[in-house]
Write a protein that binds this DNA or RNA. Structure first.
Lengths: 184, 184
DNA sequence: TTAATCATGTAACACGTTACATGATTGC
DNA sequence: GCAATCATGTAACGTGTTACATGATTAA
């Protein structure tokens, strides 16, 4: 589980509203964690309930009220505990509907499978160009911005994962297409 | 969602008990879909309830009764519908606790991160040798076994995914370690 | 004698998705 | 005039995890 810790992590840097947090997830972090507002608000309520966050309402003219969340000491501790417990082996336990379908595909429609693999390649290529854009953006941050300077390295590493993963997805799909064509 | 469809797919070939199905998942399919018995039995009950499966009890001497599940026509249809609706783009929406932690790691313990990345490389190497074993096993199936001959190709493609993924994981981790060492 | 295997499940909780609901403001 | 953005959420359902429960047999 991580959405709650992600919320704590973002609020650790800046007090924000649920809406703003949602945008950070669905813009900057969406390639490794996407969310719906329903979950954001539920988890924020639960974090507030357990004393990891507090909130203040702020009125706005002509717009709905804002509810700004602030991390507490307890929240900071919880976040730090989570952060320093690195165990990446768990991340290898993935579920893949795609592989499940392919596993059963001797009963399936081969032409559709081929079409879908080609589409998969296209989508991965799109991802690659998006990653490239973001990578360029990061490089152009001002060097004298200390906070960015430190976190940039880690941002780079996460982006690199996306890039390498997309490249490997494409390699796999190409080789799979070759296997499928071979035995006709 | 796929566990239910996976169960239908396995029962499509062979009537089996929940226990046997669980073993297939946790032995042959575990690298793309792992399960607990609690979920297996719940989903079997739900599939039976919706008319996709039927079951018969079989007594055994000295062992608990077996409850063997059989797929129905309705179940076959449902499985087929699912199978032929290929959309692999969805599979690109993954969540990664690992990347989330790295993203926040300017607040974290760098030494632990490095250690964990090295461990990640080890685990991926272990996976690679497992994949190799299974791949050899598949190659040595008798060629005159028609069923295996057809499904082997698809089994190969799923294994190839595992292999390429592990290789790319290792590449990423190595490059990440390099990035982390660079700025000291 | 201890652990593993066979074989069934229940209960409670955590996390994720889909659909619905409200209502003003701003840009095309 | 219509869609998007701002901003909050609720309800219901689906899926995954953890812990618990039973009880005989067999292999180390």
């Amino acid at each position: 589980m991580s959405l709650k810790h992600g919320l704590l992590g973002l609020l650790n840097d800046d007090p924000q509203t649920g809406y703003e947090l949602m945008k950070v997830f669905n813009n900057s972090l969406q390639f490794f964690w996407s969310v719906q507002t329903s979950q954001i608000y539920r988890d924020l309520a639960s974090l507030e309930n357990s004393g990891c966050l507090t909130s203040r309402k702020e009125e706005q003219s002509g717009k709905p009220d804002k509810k700004i969340y602030y991390i507490t000491e307890k929240g900071k501790e919880k976040f730090q505990l989570w952060l320093n417990e690195y165990d990446f082996s768990k991340s290898l336990k993935t579920r893949s509907t795609m592989l499940m379908k392919i596993f059963f595909s001797n009963n399936g429609d081969k032409e559709k499978l081929i079409k879908s693999l080609k589409e998969y390649i296209n989508v991965n290529n799109q991802f690659l160009s998006e990653y490239k854009e973001v990578a360029d953006y990061i490089k152009n941050f001002k060097l004298n911005d200390d906070i960015c300077h430190n976190s940039r390295k880690y941002w780079e590493i996460t982006l690199l994962k996306g890039k390498i993963e997309s490249e490997s997805n494409i390699q796999w799909a190409l080789q799979s297409l070759a296997i499928l064509k071979k035995e006709e």
